[in-house]
Structure formats: structure tokens, C-alpha cells
Amino acid sequence: MSERPLPGAGPPEKRLPVTMERIRSGATPARRVAGRLLKPPPSPFPYTSPTWPDSVPRPPAPRELGVDYDTDWARRYPARVARLLLTELVAKPMVAVLADPHVAGEDRIAHLDGPVVFAANHASHIDTPLLLSVLPEPWRHRTVVAGAADYFFDTKLKAAVLALSINAIPIERRRVSRTSANRAAALLQEGWSLLIFPEGGRSPDGWGQSHQPGAAWLAARTGRAIVPVHVEGTRSILPRHSGRIRPGTTHVTFGRPLQPSSGDNPRDLAAKLEAAVSALADEHDTDWWTARQRAARGTSPGLTGPSGAGTWRRTWALGAPTRRSASTRRWPKP
């Protein structure tokens, strides 16, 4: 081997025994330790999850979320205490400030004993905290809320937050799923009331949607009463597809409970429930007597709005001023 420099190259650099490189690359113990700690692991697996061989069919994804999310923990004592504090000290004052709830019809349910199914119309995310804070005392802290399995239980964090704060349980909204229905039924038997929105989701345009049969099915199965509930005014506070909250006034009306009898067909019960909620809306818009009369004739205005009408007409009809919605009060009543 020749030690001569290549032609054209400068003379070999004179080297100090200690070079900067050496100091940099070499050797402080701290650097070595840090280097060892920061060194990436030698190969990804087993430090990362294994890859899945293409030739092996994947089993259905591990079902820990969605309808399979286990909410038992949220009904154990520590979670209940936390939720009680949360409801009473946070949710209730906030609802009072933002939504100014006016409650009617509590007397209709005062005689009820034990768990019931509260079935309400649904226009806004505010509905749940609003209802939870206005539910009469025996039920307020013993109620689970049916939440859409696909919407509220799709990530662990969301599921955990909702299970803890509102005692949500996952429910399939478009079909009666055995798992979710059984669980809800079991909870009803155990003494938990259920708050459910039979429309299966918030109204897209302000009008109600036709009911899913789940609530009626549950009541029929467990023999528990369904309390129809009508909520009005939440849409203007926080409509769907909006992130902005405008404080407003809300009205919650509890209806007469529907007691399923043993021979009741859940389908009939569902129809009765839908009619009852429509009547409550009518009662809110007009007065109790008019509403009863129209209900008896079967001419209560449908919650679902004019059918067959163009989009603008539905919206137009929705915007018609009602007797009580003109309130501009911003502050809670004393």
C-alpha cells in the first residue's frame, strides 16, 4: 500500500493527538449513556407490533370499542360519585346558564316507581346534559344514556369520557343489536333507568325523524314504563354541524308514561310513543286541551314536518313563530 498522497492532493494534514472529532464522537460518559438510551432498537419487531402475514386471513378486529365497549366500570361506586359531582356542580349550573330550562309535566311521572325508559326527541348535543339535569331526583343519578355505538364509542378516550360523565352505554342506532339491547334490558332490570332518543340521532334540519323501534322494544321486553319527553329550543343553542353555543331558553315536557302490557306488540308501542311525543310538541306549541283534542283525532302535527315538500318549505315551516319561542331572556330566572 502506498502512503503517498494522490497527485494534486495537498500534503497530508498534520494530526493532533486529540481531535475535535474525537472529542465530539468519543467519549464523554454522559454521551455514551445517552447514546445507548436513544439508540433505536435493533429491529422493529418485537419492539413494535408484528406485521400480519398476507397469507393469513385477519380475524375480525378486536372488538373492544363500539357496541362492545364495556361500561361496567362507569357504574361502580367511584365513577358514580365522580359523575354526581360532575352533574351537580358542573353540568347543572352550565345548563342553567346556557339553556334556561323550563320544565313541565313532572307531575305526570311523580307516581312512577323504579326504572323507566325516557324517550325524547333529539335535536342537539345539549339534549342529554339538559335532560340529565332536569330529571327528577329519584332518576337523575340512576339513569344510563343510550349513545350511538358508532359515534360516541369509536375511540377509547371518547367512550371513557362519555361513560363517565353521562353514564352512556353503546347502542346500535339503526338496528336492534342483540348485544346492546340485551345489555340495556339487563340494566333496566338492575334498576337503572334509560334515557334514549328513539329518533336514532340528532335532527339534520330541525324537524324530527321517524322513530327507531328500540325504545319500545326495550320497554315491552322489560315491562317498564316509557316516559315520552319533548325538548324544545336546544337546536337554536347548538344545532347540528355547528360548534358555536348561543345561550337560549329551552322547554322540557314530560308526558304521561306509557305502560306496556304483556300482550303489547313493540311496533304498536313504538307508534304510540311517536304519537305521544308529537302530542307533547303540540301541547308545547299550542295548549294542553288543543293538543289532546288533536291527538284524540289523530291530527297532531307530525314532528317530522311536511312530507313531500321541498327543502326550503320544510325550513320555512320550521321557522314559523310559535307562542313561546320569542323569548329573548338571556339570564336565568331568579
Binding site: S43, F45, P50, T51, W52, P53, D54, S55, V56
Partner: peptide, 21 residues
């Protein structure tokens, strides 16, 4: 019987008192 492809993770291989991937 697994046909090994590019997405197959390393396979555990016994090595006396130990194993390797």
C-alpha cells in the same frame, strides 16, 4: 402451515436455553 411472505414477522426459533427471532 404458514407460507412466508414479505409481511411475515420474524419467526421464533428455539436456541437451547433461549430463543431468537
Amino acid at each position: 402451515v404458514l407460507e412466508v411472505d414479505r409481511s411475515t414477522p420474524p419467526i421464533l426459533t428455539w436456541h437451547g436455553e433461549g430463543f431468537r427471532l
